[in-house]
Design a protein around this nucleic acid. Sequence first.
RNA 1: GGAGAGGUGGCAGAGUGGUUGAAUGUACCUGACUCGAAAUCAGGCAUACACGCAAGUGUAUCGAGGGUUCGAAUCCCUCCCUCUCCGCCA
Length: 425
Amino acid sequence: MLDIQLLRNDLDGVAKRLASRGYVLGTTEFTALEAERKKMQTRTQDLQAKRNASSKQIGIAKSKGEDVAAILAEVASLGDELKADEEKLALIQTQMQDLLLNLPNLPHESVPVGKSEENNVEVRRVGEPKKFDFAVKDHVDVGTPLGLDFDTGAKLAGARFTLMRGQIAKLHRALAQFMLDTQTEEHGYTECYTPYLVNAETLTGTGQLPKFEEDLFSLQHNDSKLYLIPTSEVTLTNTVRDAIVPLESLPIKLTAHTPCFRSEAGSYGKDTRGMIRQHQFDKVEMVQIVHPENSYAALEEMVGHAETILQKLGLPYRVMALCTGDMGFGAAKTYDLEVWLPAQNTYREISSVSNCEAFQARRMQARFRNEAGKPELLHTLNGSGLAVGRTLVAVLENYQNADGSVTIPEVLHPYMGGLEQLKAN
RNA sequence: GGAGAGGUGGCAGAGUGGUUGAAUGUACCUGACUCGAAAUCAGGCAUACACGCAAGUGUAUCGAGGGUUCGAAUCCCUCCCUCUCCGCCA
C-alpha cells in the first residue's frame, strides 16, 4: 500500500511513476474522493465534538442535580444528522481503502524502465553452459524413466500435478534439505515451519488480496474461508503483522521449506509440458524484515544467498534486473535468477528476489521502534532460495548423461545416502 | 464436540452508564537533590487520523464487529482468541 500522504501531496508524481510500470492511476477519481472525504470527515468530527461536549455537560448537571431537559433536547436534534454523516464517511473511507489496496508499489529509481520481460536488464552471467556431445533431452524425457510420473499426477489431481517416485522423489527432498541447511547454517536465517492455509487478512498483508484472489486456491471451512499459500513469503512476512518490534531484533531473517499452491489462472497453454509450471510446488523461501536504511543492501545480499545455491549445484545462471513493467505488484525492485536449461536452450526463472520497501509493512502495520523511540514502518524483502521443482528440472537437464543416467551434484551426495548417479532400474 | 473462566496501556492490575484515554504499581525518559550513584521528590511517558504555516484543537481506539443510550471499558447480540476440565484424535 502506498502512503496516502504521498498521493495527497504529489498525485501527478505518483501517477507518473505508476505509469512507468503500466498502471494508469485514476487521478480525477482520487481527487474527487479525497475532496469528499475531507468534507465529510471534518463535518462528522465537528458534530461528534458537539455531541461529546453536550453529553459531558449532561453528566455534570446531573451530578449537581440540575435539570437537563434543555441540553437533552438540543443534543437530540444532532442524532440523525450525525448518524447519516458517520455512515457516509465510513463508506467513503472504505472506497478510499479499496482504491489504495489495489495500487501497486512505486518502482525504485534504479529500476530500468520498460514495458515487458524483453526490457529486463542482464546484470551478470555466472557459469558456462555445458557442451553436450549427444542430443540433449528435456527433463520430462530424462526424468520419466527415473520416476517422474506426470500421468499419475494428472490422474490423481489433474493437469499441472506431478507424482515423483523413488530416486527422483529422494533427489527432490535432498534439494530442499540442502537449500534449507545452506540458508540456515551459512546465511543466518531462522528455520520456520508455517501454516499452509491462511486467512484473508494474512494475504491482504502481503498484497495477494484483494486484487489477485483468482490466482489462489481456497477452501470453505464452516463459516470461514481459508487460502492455500502461494508462497511462504506470505506466512513468514506476516509474522510481524500488527507488531512493533524492538530495534535490536533487526534484521529478522526467516526461511521455510513449504509447498506453494497457485491456480495459474491466465496461464493456460503456457509451459504445459513437464514440471516447470505446477499448481503445487515446493520452495525454500527467504524473508528479511529490516530497518528501512538497510533494505537495498539486504536485497543485494539476498540475491547472493540465492546464487550460492546455484553455484554449489554447479548450475549456470544469469541475474536479471526486472524492468518497471515486469515487476510484481508489491515490489519496488526485483532481481530474477534464471537458470540455464539446455533442452530449451535458454535461461528460465528459478528465483525472484524483491524489496517491497514499506509496501507490505504499511498494509500489515508492521513497525519497529526507531532510535527516537517512535514506531516506524519496516521494510520487507522476500526471495526464493530456491524453487525446488525448477531446481530439480535444472539438475536433470544439466547433469544428464548419454546413457540416460543423471549425475548427482556433489553437494547433494550426503543427502542422497552417498548415491552419485540416478539410473533407471 | 460438551462444561467453565478470561481478553484493559511495555508489563502487572483497578474500573457503581456520566468532567475516564482510562486509578494504582512497575518499567522507561527528563529535571531536582548528590562529587557521582542509590534512595527520595517533581514532571513526562499509547496509537492512528483530521484540520492548521505553527502553537494547537478535534476525532477514534479498553480482543473484533454490531446494537441500546444524550453519553458505553462498563448493558445487550454475534464473532475471534487464550486458559482449565471432560470427550475424541495423528
